[in-house]
Design a protein around this nucleic acid. Structure first.
Lengths: 342, 342
DNA sequence: GGCTGCGATTAAACCGTTTCATATTTCGGC
DNA sequence: GCCGAAATATGAAACGGTTTAATCGCAGCC
């Protein structure tokens, strides 16, 4: 229990040393290289530590040793369930090594990202796991020069200057489209977000690949773009589909909210899902499984993404120099639910 | 841009001092009490800092000054959207003061909570914002004795030993029930989780208060308890309601997932929501607004909870001794949607 | 002209550890 | 019982800043 009265000078390594009757160097050894100190001594020191309720000051230790037991995690928004999962994975992985994770929300704002990176730099974090706003902010180089290892997560990185962990969106697009084709669909609508976003572009590419591989003409895939990837956006997209001359027999939405919106509008219009039109979404958010018509969706191993990225950064931190940057590609996974059951 | 070649000795305060032709003490002053140093000198120093790309080592500064620019945030699970919001609020509030937030997930496991608190203690965080597993772990006292300020969030605290921020669940229960009564409901079913959970007990209490205040007999409120507060749990609860002799004319569920389940089962059974039965949920999760029948729900200012708690802890940290602990109670807010429209 | 007072600057001590060169102890072997 | 090597323990320096007491320069004042 080791109560201390408020305000008592904090117990430090020297008081432990004094109580145990050894030098402070020995106490330090007990803490860091227990095998180098004789058992009897070690026990005595440990007893003193216990008795005094001594908790080493990691900051001081880090200062002297030049190491650091903190990493930064920079995500656009922890409120986004996707990144919450990523964060969870990161924190868990770091926790295994007793490394603390500093959370930062960039809000997709380069300036904000910068500010947080400043903070991380000041704290001399050992590493940073980041979903960068821009492709590769030059800023990251500074960070690394200052000694922090950097790993990019959920963003494809061209350079081999950093480790990175991402999910193959092209494959995901292919997966969903192949599934719909397998159902017998021949006129597939792609409800997409802004293709300026890499994931949207990649998922579309995957869809096209699947169409081509199936030997179908390119116009078997028609695209509707929607600036906002929300339920409302999905509803609007569905309206467009309903207006069109040739109704599709399947819809692939590049995210689940769009898919939910589309589903809602189509059923509302009297069409049966999946009877008349099969639907697949992307991201496999909670809502997908819980929707009135459970939604087929391409899931991403979000937790794994964060976990692995953090493992990588920890490895790079520990690595005795010889470190080869790694580019890890996770595979998306298709979960088939009622919305595409025939 | 200030590039540094890999491995160059990191620029420290002394190199800045040398370049600026001043002592290191002056540089420190420029950093911490800019007004105490002459303008000309300050400019010279700032120029040197800029030129060298100097970034102060916060850890070293904290060590000597005894302060700390980090706080810990301990939540059960960042993956839970509720706590994601809280975290967002906390990070934002801390960011205002350039304080870093270390994220910890206790998983409702006292042992895990303890381990994370150890980590925070070692890092000598200035404060901790925590949603504690148990009412008030004795552990928190240790933390505080070590110098960290502690604020409890989203958990009612009996003692006045800590600041705390919580939402009034009794009021929330009352709010929802009053609303249903106002609709003309006279037989209300309460679909509740385990009342061993404080929020569940409180929300029920609020419901009862509303019934009583309306001058209705206590049995105007019937309760169905469900161990799992999930959609599936809601479906099962609805089954019980359907079996019962006197069908209720309104249902108050103590969380939204239950409510979604109940709604789904009732409509599936041919009943109209809100026509035959009005439904209200609790928490106002995203799903509530996005459900097929948008759900009336009692919302909690989650973001505000985290933001305020962090403000409090920062204030307590800064406070020059004279600090009175504060118990902040947030008011829940009812959002009426289709599920209870008449 | 000497003294005071004040703002600006400095040098040295210090924060709590780790590190490392050095000192001391232990111990097997003869 | 002695020797040298191996095993342990030690003390001081160092990490990168902040803090404090002391110093410096200089204007104002009698």
């Amino acid at each position: 229990m080791t109560k201390q009265s408020r305000g008592r000078p904090p117990t430090g390594i020297r008081e432990v040393a004094q109580l145990a009757g050894v030098s402070i160097g020995t106490v330090s050894n007990v803490l860091n290289k227990p095998d180098v100190v004789a058992e009897r001594t070690r026990e005595r020191v440990l007893a003193a530590i216990e008795r005094l309720g001594f908790v080493p000051n990691r900051g001081a230790a880090d200062l002297r040793s030049g190491r650091s037991r903190m990493i930064g995690l920079v995500v656009p928004d922890i409120t986004n369930p996707f990144f919450a999962e990523v964060a969870r994975g990161a924190v868990d992985a770091a926790g295994e090594s007793n490394v603390a994770v500093v959370l930062c929300n960039s809000d997709q704002d380069p300036a904000k990202e910068d500010r947080y990176l400043d903070v991380l730099e000041e704290h001399r974090v050992a590493g940073v796991v980041i979903n960068p706003v821009e492709a590769i902010p030059a800023r990251l180089a500074d960070l690394r020069d200052r000694g922090s290892k950097v790993v990019c997560v959920h963003r494809s990185v061209k350079t081999t200057d950093y480790c990175s962990v991402a999910v193959d969106d092209v494959q995901g697009g292919r997966l969903a489209t192949e599934h719909l084709l397998g159902l017998g669909a021949r006129r597939i609508a792609l409800v997409n977000g802004p293709v300026s976003l890499r994931p949207c572009a990649d998922r579309r590419l995957g869809a096209r690949q699947a169409i081509k591989a199936a030997g179908l003409p390119a116009d078997a895939l028609t695209e509707v773009q929607q600036p906002a990837m929300t339920i409302k956006g999905g509803i609007e997209a569905a309206d467009q589909l309903l207006k069109g001359s040739r109704r599709p027999d399947a819809v692939f939405c590049t995210n689940d909210l769009l898919a939910v919106g589309v589903t809602r509008r189509l059923t509302q219009a009297g069409l049966s899902v999946p009877g008349d039109i099969a639907i697949a979404g992307y991201d496999d958010i909670d809502l997908a499984a819980e929707a009135t018509i459970p939604l087929t969706s391409v899931g991403q191993p979000k937790y794994g993404l964060g976990y692995r990225a953090t493992e990588l950064v920890l490895a790079e931190i520990t690595a005795a120099d010889g470190h080869r940057h790694e580019r890890v590609a996770f595979h998306p996974q298709l979960t088939v639910r009622e919305s595409s059951l025939r």
